[in-house]
């Protein structure tokens, strides 16, 4: 990331649609949209404005690299004569516009799993390679945001091609990568005053956002805690649903299923969750994780110990989704604090 490349541009708020339209000539634009009373990321249609007055989306945008249902191969004909059909069409490049820094961080976390020297998930890689990231600083972090714990933060630019800040009447957009810069090149140049405003906003957000101190110590701490009774204590109220894992931007577990409609079939990857008992149930009936506490332990251990051990990074970006949406208020921040104290 060379500083000389750094480019500061701006758009008046009421011109945002014009900019989107320019982007849409070459890119599919994925942006926050309002759905009922909350926000989800989705592809913008013609003349559709992004909904940028939001804190964060209910679901993370991970589905754009790792769709909840994704076809691996298709096939047809009778069962003992089928061969896989697989075609890779050219895909239009995409821009995820308005994605929050924690969700960008999560993408970087997922990259380590899906694209590494052992094996590459070609489906993930293709979507990832064809997507540019225009991330969006958070002027109003939620009370449940704790991204600052993870070498991230409300204005972290890591992983972005361009970075958007809301400075009141306008958005400033800073180019970060060469590609990002090229795309925003035609926008009017920003000035020092705008950057100063951004700095103030950033400072405020950095002050507001919470941080779990010494999170780096958690993986080590967890190493000896597999047999600790704390797991039973923290999981007793858990309902074993898929909310925390499906909304989490870093959860990556999936299932592979076949599906037939008449003679046509497809094999798909579907999201799955370690919180569901059937996740680990053997064909023989053997069940290595019979109890809720074992599944809760797996979720926490996977994120904060196993993942770190394998990929040198904790699999959480502090987005807070699991905290706000769990039907019984199981709070990962509380769990981490508890673990620290043990």
């Amino acid at each position: 990331m060379k500083d000389s490349l750094k480019n500061v541009k701006y758009i008046e708020k009421d011109k945002i649609l014009d900019f989107i339209k320019v982007l849409q000539k070459d890119y599919t634009v994925i942006a926050p949209k309002k759905v009922k009373d909350f926000v989800l990321f989705g592809e913008l249609k013609d003349n559709e404005e992004p909904y940028l007055d939001f804190l964060n989306s209910r679901q993370s945008p991970k589905e754009f690299y790792f769709p909840q249902t994704e076809t691996i191969v298709e096939y047809e004909g009778i069962i003992d004569k089928r061969v896989p059909k697989f075609s890779e069409n050219d895909m239009k490049k995409r821009i995820i516009f308005g994605i929050r820094p924690c969700d960008v961080k999560s993408t970087l976390i997922l990259d380590k799993l899906f694209v590494n020297e052992d094996y590459i998930d070609d489906y993930y890689k293709r979507l990832r390679d064809n997507t540019l990231i225009f991330s969006f600083g958070c002027n109003n972090p939620k009370t449940t945001c704790f991204c600052a714990s993870f070498e991230c933060g409300p204005f972290s630019e890591e992983g972005s091609d361009a970075f958007i800040t809301d400075i009141g009447d306008k958005f400033i957009i800073e180019g970060i990568t060469e590609q990002g810069n090229k795309i925003i090149d035609k926008l009017p140049d920003g000035d020092g005053g705008m950057l100063k405003k951004k700095k103030e906003i950033k400072k405020n957000s950095d002050n507001v956002v919470s941080c779990i101190e010494n999170i780096q110590k958690i993986p080590e701490k967890l190493r000896g805690m597999f047999e600790n009774p704390v797991w039973e204590e923290i999981s007793e109220r858990c309902l074993g649903c898929g909310v925390c894992t499906y909304l989490c931007p870093t959860c990556h577990c999936f299932d592979i299923q076949d599906e037939m409609i008449g003679e046509d079939g497809r094999r798909v990857k579907n999201w799955d969750s370690c919180m569901f008992p059937i996740f680990t149930l053997h064909g023989s009936g053997h069940q290595p994780r019979e109890f809720r506490f074992q599944r809760m332990r797996q979720r926490i251990m996977h994120k904060f110990n196993y993942y770190e051990e394998n990929f040198n990074i904790i699999a959480c970006s502090g987005c807070g989704r699991c905290v706000t949406e769990c039907p019984v208020n199981i709070d990962v921040r509380e769990i981490l604090e508890k673990i620290k104290k043990l």
Binding site: Q59, Q68, C241, V243, Y246, L247, W271, F276, P327
Partner: peptide, 24 residues
């Protein structure tokens, strides 16, 4: 159409306690 099949509805429901749910 918005359903993400997290089954929170089922798991939060006191009457949904089948050993094996039909979806599984």
């Amino acid at each position: 159409s918005r359903c993400i099949r997290c089954y929170a509805c089922r798991n939060a429901c006191p009457a949904c306690y089948c050993n094996e749910c039909f979806v599984d």
